[in-house]
Write a protein that binds this DNA or RNA. Sequence first.
DNA 1: GTTGCGTTTATTTTT
DNA 2: TAAACGCAAC
Length: 684
Amino acid sequence: MDLATLNTPQRDAVTHGTGPLLVLAGAGSGKTRVITFRIAQLLKQGVDPRHIAALTFTNKAAAEMRERVATLLPEKSQASKLTMGTFHSLGLNILKQERKAMGFPRGFVIYDTSDQLGLLREILRRLRNGDRKYDVKSILSRISLAKNAFVAPEDFSPATFDDYDEITAEVYGKYQTALRNFAAVDFDDLITEVVNIFNRNAEVRERWASKFRYLLVDEYQDTNKAQLHMIRALIEKHYNLCVVGDDDQSIYSWRGADTGNILGFGNMFPGAKIVKLEQNYRSTPNILEAANAVIGNNTDRYGKTLWSAMKPGTPITHAIADDANVEARFVAQEIVNLKQEQQRPYKDFAVLYRSNKQAKLIEEEFRERQIPYAMFGGQQFFERREVKDLIAYLRVALNPRDEIALRRIINYPARGIGGTTVQRLTGWCASERMPLWNGLVRIQELEGVRPGTKRSVSNFTEVVNRLGIEIERGGNVVALTRGLMEDIGLVDDIQKASPNFKAAQKRIDNIESLLKSLARQQERTAGKDALVEFLRLLSLDGADDEAEEVGNSVTLTTLHGSKGLEFPVVFLIGWEEEILPHARTLMPTAADITSGDYTPDVGEERRLAYVGITRAQQELYVSRSVVRIMRGKPIPRTPSRFLMEIPEELVTERNIANEMEAPVKAEELSAFFAEFAGEFANRD
DNA sequence: GTTGCGTTTATTTTT
DNA sequence: TAAACGCAAC
């Protein structure tokens, strides 16, 4: 570690002693270097690694950070003693250790989004017997936003004239009670429940506050109110907090991030030092100037001006395409050309868009031309149904109170326990005030259920019960799971339910890779705990078989997904009003209309534009279409206001239609017609 | 439990 | 437009 390789503000941040520190790190200003150097510096000064915690938002970021710190240390093993992870993983660790004080049962589980939705649907079904259908996702998002803002069910006050807020108010508390009854927590609870125990139990709070003498937080602009509470409690003893972030890159307010945290840092933490990192090592001055100009139109920011010591670089290309197909074709063609002319590998390129559906045309075009690409995002995580089903068995075996998991498997694979039986069961359990599982076990006492069905239910509870007992005894979980699959005929069912052999094989492979990573966990942790831990990490991390190696391919991702990445050549597509800024942010809400003074807040959309521009190192293309087919109709398009905010002198305009139509070579044309004629000839 | 048909609705996504 | 959803019929 050589401090001389840092610029002045970077060094100031790294060598800052005690007390709160805010590092405002512009895009490409060496933010990660500052965090890793600072940690290394603290260790060099003799701080015990166990007294340092660094929090990030993704597991990937945490792993990378640990690795980079290790390379700076003379003694690498110190890095493994650092507390490094996401807010949620730290929250989980605290909850596990303080479980008793919290009154949480030993094997509590973490509900993921699909579990949460299932639970909410169930509550709504009971509450309103189908008198109205609700968008469950939107209710869940309101609950989540409330939790992120650290608003408890009893404090939730619905906005007037907002019926979704009203139903949320009605359901939020029930949702929370149900979670606890099922021995479950959701993602947001991993933060809020930690804050709750800190608030209720001074002994616990002081213990954790003593442990962490230095706390570092990355991507601070993405933190929410609940996380702020957690941070405050953790630093109350030593008051050594270093946060790093960029207010101009705050793009997650829609999921609870509160820019007030970073904008109000100085007031919230008196005596705070603020360091700005404005020298950019990533992009050409041309690109930076464009970025500065665009973001300069935002209010509510600290205000930074990025600068670069590089040569000005090439102008930005503003590509105007006749329609979206032409736009996609242009991007593909330009990548092929630049690859040739500048000897660039495919991985030098990225195509960034506002919403995932924009990727479709690009994908089609790339496939046609055999351009390799890697897509990030999307939802392939949730579609592995077979994996979720198997996991549900393990969850119920471990924790029969987990009613959502139980409902998932009660008739999977089909065993003749249909909707009517389940309904009768839940009704009975509700009146007897007992968990669904108990009802299943006592099925013989329930009248009006056919004997065959009763036998199915008993077989089911028997299988799950036996699994639970064997796990409890510390049996080999992988072997037990295989036994279970045998018992319930899972493989047969998958083969039967799949349209073809290949699809079935793929699903079985998914299960195999799940078992593999379970085996790995078993090597690390003993007996039953292996499974408890495995299930929790699975919700927190996703399966660790995500071996998607990017290799040498063009990156396709959303603007959101591109944060933190950089590419020599970047294409920003679809810069049109209602795409960027997105139509939804331009639309007034009911409250806006009532108050009558509506001006759309496009600040966050502008920050998205800013994030996009600052991903580019050397070449930047911003493209738009003149006409675009939307909802089946061709719609004339207006250029994005952000495009107009880029100074003209930085930009070269290119009209694409003309370029695209010309280059059909004569011999290609005649070959085409020859083939065409042949086809006609063959027809009759 | 599955299939098919009519209806509805079009962000961003991590933990 | 097209994909996702919900409901009814098998």
